[in-house]
Structure formats: C-alpha cells, structure tokens
Design a binder for these strands. Sequence first.
DNA 1: CAAACCAATCTGGTTAACCAATTTTTTAAC
DNA 2: GTTAAAAAATTGGTTAACCAGATTGGTTTG
Lengths: 233, 233
Amino acid sequence: MKLEILTKNDHQQLHNDIIAKIRDLINNKNLEPGDKLPSERMLSERFEVSRGNVRETIQKLEFYGILKSKPQSGTFVADIGRVAMNGMIDDILALEDPDFKSLVETRILLELKTVRLAAKRRTNDDLEKIEAALESYKEKVLNNEDAVQEDLLFHLAIAQACRNSTINRMMLIITPEIINNFEKYHVCDKNQGPKRIKEHQDIFNAIKEQNTQKAKEMMKVHFNELYKYCYNI
Amino acid sequence: MKLEILTKNDHQQLHNDIIAKIRDLINNKNLEPGDKLPSERMLSERFEVSRGNVRETIQKLEFYGILKSKPQSGTFVADIGRVAMNGMIDDILALEDPDFKSLVETRILLELKTVRLAAKRRTNDDLEKIEAALESYKEKVLNNEDAVQEDLLFHLAIAQACRNSTINRMMLIITPEIINNFEKYHVCDKNQGPKRIKEHQDIFNAIKEQNTQKAKEMMKVHFNELYKYCYNI
DNA sequence: CAAACCAATCTGGTTAACCAATTTTTTAAC
DNA sequence: GTTAAAAAATTGGTTAACCAGATTGGTTTG
C-alpha cells in the first residue's frame, strides 16, 4: 500500500468523499436507523482507503450525531431518520470554510447575547474575574503595550459569566479563527487606547449593575467599528 | 503497557489532564509563541500516557488554535500570546457538557438571526429548497405521520439560506444534540399539526417577501412554547 | 423442544512498528 | 577557520499487528 502525507485540505476532501460513500451505502442498502454499518475493515476495503481514514470519518459523523459506534460491537445509524440524515449530510458536505465576514457577524451576534446574559446571571465571582481582566487590559494599554490578548480575555470572561455552556463553547471555537483573521487582515486599530478603555469600562459597569439593556448597548458601541467594517459601511 | 478501553467521559477527563500538563509545561519552561514543544514521544513518556492520547489532545488544542503542528518538524505554540493561551485553556478545561436549556437558548438565538439573514439574502434557489422542505413537512403532517425530520430540514434549509457558513456550522453542531434531548425529555408536542403548518407557512412567506422583521416575528411565535418551556414560564 | 452454555469469530479500541520529510550533527574540502 | 555537503538522528504521519469485549452459531443439557 502506498503511503503519502496529505495536507489539511486533502484530508477534508477525502473525508467528504468517504462521507458521501457512506451516505450512498446507507441509502442503497436501505439501512434504517439503528441498523449496523459494515465493519471498519470492510468499509476501508470497499472504499479503497485506509482504516484510519474510515475511523476519522466515522468520528466526524459521530460528532454531528449521524452515526454511533459501540466498542467491540459495531457502528450504527443514529435514530434521526433517513430523510433528516440525508439532509444533514448534504449540509455537512456543503459546509464552506468560514469567511471573515461570517466570523465577525457571528461574533457580534454571540457577544450581544452573552453580555445580556452575563448582566443578568453573573455571580460575584464572575464579576471579579471580569474586573481582573479589565484591570490588566487597562494596565497594558496605559503602558502603551500591545493588549490584544487582554482584550480577548475580557470578552471570554464575559462569555463565561453568561452561564450558557453552548454559547461559551461556540465563542471558544470562533475565537482563534477571529484572531488569525485579525492578524491576517490587520483590522486591529492602533492608538485608540483611551476610547477602548472607556468602552470596556462601560460594559463592565453595566454588567455590575445588572442592567441588561445598557450592557447590550455598550457592547454595540464597542463593536461599532467592527460592524461598519463587516458591512462595508 | 496496560491496555484498557475508556468511555467517552474517561477520554475527556484524560484529555483535560494532558491539556493541563501541557499548559504547565509551557508555563514552567517559559515557552514563547512560536517555540517548539517536546516531541509527541517525549510527552507521552513524561506524562505516562500513550502517544495516541497525546496526539488526540494536541489535535484538540489545534482545533482551538492554541497549538500548531508541522509534519516531520514538531508541534509549536501558536501566535496568540501566553496570557491569552492560559485564559483559553482554562476556559476549555472549564467547559461543561451542554445542558438542554443552554441548547434551546442557543438555538433560539441562532435561528432568530438565520431567519432574518435568510429573508435578506436568500436566492431563488434557496427559496425553492425551503419551499420543498415546507411541502414535504405539510404532506407528512396532513397524513398524520411523524414529521420531526421534515420539521428539522425546514429549519436547516433556512440556515443554509442565511449565507453565513459559521452560523450554519453551529446549527449543524447543536441540531443532533437538540434532537437527542427532545427525544429524551419528550418535549415534542403532538396534535398541533395545523398550527405548526401555519407557523411554518408564515415564516416561509416572510422569507419569500424578504420581510426581515416579519420573518423574525413569525419565528418568535414558532418558538413561543419552546421558549416558555426553556424559561419555565 | 427449549434454554443454557461454550468456543470460534468479529468488532472497535489500542499499541507498536514503520515511513518519509526535516533537522541536526558530523565530516570533508577549501 | 569557514563553509558546504553528507550522514545520522528526530519528527509527525501512517500503517499493520494486537487486544479484550461482544456477538453468533452450534452443541449440550435439562
């Protein structure tokens, strides 16, 4: 068997190919929810790929809740019905790499929600953590040092205070992608220190006062320039 | 070396342990962004776990943009700074399994946005797909058949029409978890067919007319009972 | 005839061996 | 002494071999 090292994109394409083949297999063999798929070894032989690739693909479909593999037993079609399964698989195959605009749009959406929820639900402990992040941000800015990290941590501290593990998880997912794209496109504005400090302070105060409406408004102000950039205003 | 099969939870705990050890290693050795981590073999020996576990954990941290591994070269600390890295790792370690309430809360947030964006951006092709999903939903309901899948596909079709790959990805992530929890908690309401059809039809019409405000309002109505359930009203 | 048991087989999970590209060290030439 | 070339060691990626639990079919036993 030939051995070659694949790039990330090749990998993704290979996974998509296998996903499509698994979908066709399920449809052609009329496999119902709960039915067992052929073993990993048989699939790897039939699809002419390594067993490792089959495993990785199955794990991906497991992540999206389409398959369910049981140790020492087999891999099974999940209980979501064939129609839904086909729809979801088509969606997965059509998934594009996230563009910067969609990332920013999503970040704004999530953060306008997290800040409201944080204002409503924050514990005193949460508040202390947010304040600590705010203070280290201030210190960096006032010393004219780069404060991108501290900025980020302030926002993540708010996300943690929103007490919604799903939103929190999504914030974590997009954060590194945002950072990379910020660096790539040089969106970070320089020499806006005092203005940014005030915006952060306003957000913190609103959370402290548990004023959800004000918190949202202050976050909106904070995102104003990013918003304009995103929508090319 | 001992061989044992771990459950999903054990796996996650093991990964978290290794993540914490990698974090401590980076901090103790004062590794800067861009520096190279010890090799996978050395890490597995030092942490007394298998190399496979180390690889899986590194992949997880790569997913969150904290590490970056280069083939035949090594694994490197990403360019996000030590402060941000520590903050993000702490967030990752604190991530809880998603509870049902957070899932519903997030779904409502995402869908109120997708429906607005879909109303604004939908192409004619998108519209046709949404209508097709609506029609098969109607048909099932009118025949008194179970239509959970068709319901789901209608919502996913809207998500695809919103032209935001990041939001679309997140919808795909939470959808199976929503389904599982719906089944677990039996939230699905029965014998509400005609009402649900009208709600779906209203949403579709608003998207067709590209009336963003109406689309959002109709979606809110559609989520009304779920909303009440979520907030225990 | 049915139920219980047992061994052969099959399964996904795990580990160890291997590969090729890279990096580092050694060596040779100038 | 410096530099360039070559060889050895190191790396993440990949494959193949192995493991223990689950399944299955046939056999035995009540």
